[in-house]
Design a protein around this nucleic acid. Sequence first.
DNA 1: CAAGGGCTATCTATCGATAGATAGACGGAG
DNA 2: CTCCGTCTATCTATCGATAGATAGCCCTTG
Lengths: 187, 187
Amino acid sequence: MTADTRQEIMDAARAMVQTRGYNGLSFRELAKEVGVKSASVHYHFPTKGDLGAALARRYADEAIEILDGFLEASQDVGACMRMYTDVFRSALSNDNRMCLCGIMAAEHDDLPAEVRAEVDRFTDVNIRWLVKLLSRGESKAATGTVAQRALAIFAAVEGAQLVARGRGDIAVYDQAIEAYRAAGLLP
Amino acid sequence: MTADTRQEIMDAARAMVQTRGYNGLSFRELAKEVGVKSASVHYHFPTKGDLGAALARRYADEAIEILDGFLEASQDVGACMRMYTDVFRSALSNDNRMCLCGIMAAEHDDLPAEVRAEVDRFTDVNIRWLVKLLSRGESKAATGTVAQRALAIFAAVEGAQLVARGRGDIAVYDQAIEAYRAAGLLP
DNA sequence: CAAGGGCTATCTATCGATAGATAGACGGAG
DNA sequence: CTCCGTCTATCTATCGATAGATAGCCCTTG
């Protein structure tokens, strides 16, 4: 079970970061969770920054795959947007967790540079995807406007997740998303 | 300088929390910033939870005063909303800080109960104020709808702040807010 | 085929730094 | 004199990180 250890460490670490943040991630607790010693975690990820960057990198890569899958699964803009908001919803329903990069954005100033770079990339991935989606529906809109709206949607969804988590109530997320849609922010 | 110390501690602590989060707040660093010893901080705030709760309580109280001042300063809904979003903007322009309660919401699971209670109250204060503001413009809307929209606006603004901070670019905040307004989410 | 050298992955044990917290002394002001 | 505020000094717990040992595996070489 050697190759698995690295994956198990990353899985447990992701869950811990999504729950307690990057600063709340402890090598000792993480090791205990996985069932190894903290020195073994250091073997796979020499520094905490290495681990954090690896987590964010995998997170962004997975996002690309998942989101592109949505675009292939449906041609309907509204349906794709619903799948998108459901991804962020599932983090909350899974033990009141947050988007890995959302919670890391809050810790911006404490993040090692290599982690911050991957967090930035996750934002880019989201916004690019949203631009692609929005461009499907309305070919008339200017590119700049679409990019701005994509950014706003991403920010609004992250905010809904943040506030809902703070309240410990997933209904808060649902209500915010519904209001975004009613206002016309979401297609 | 005795009564001042408590205030100086709270001022410095607030700035540190807004920058590095509740977990990033250290009694030693805080004491050094103020120019006292960490034991003196413990004298005024026996535990870290006491300090955090006092910070959030004062923050929510100040929010009530500031926001009510906006309602008195102008009868125009749009103008009041702009003042509202400008408050959150000023946190970013002031050393890329976040809303105290926004960053604490991200740390939800690590917060002592007394801190969490005050963070919740801040959210309530904001939503109640937004409901009051929204109710000015459109008396036709149902109460439930207004409350939902107020929640959505608060979440969206917090999210814009979060994402802008993650990017370290206040222009991101401005663009998101502008897009909210263009979409009709903000009055 | 067998022996040996390196490689992988883990362990035990420990490092210095820092966290929050506390006890008790000291000094100035009412 | 007493009390309030701050100090010195220290405690325990935990942090990320490192050193050094070890068990098992694979590959080469004779």
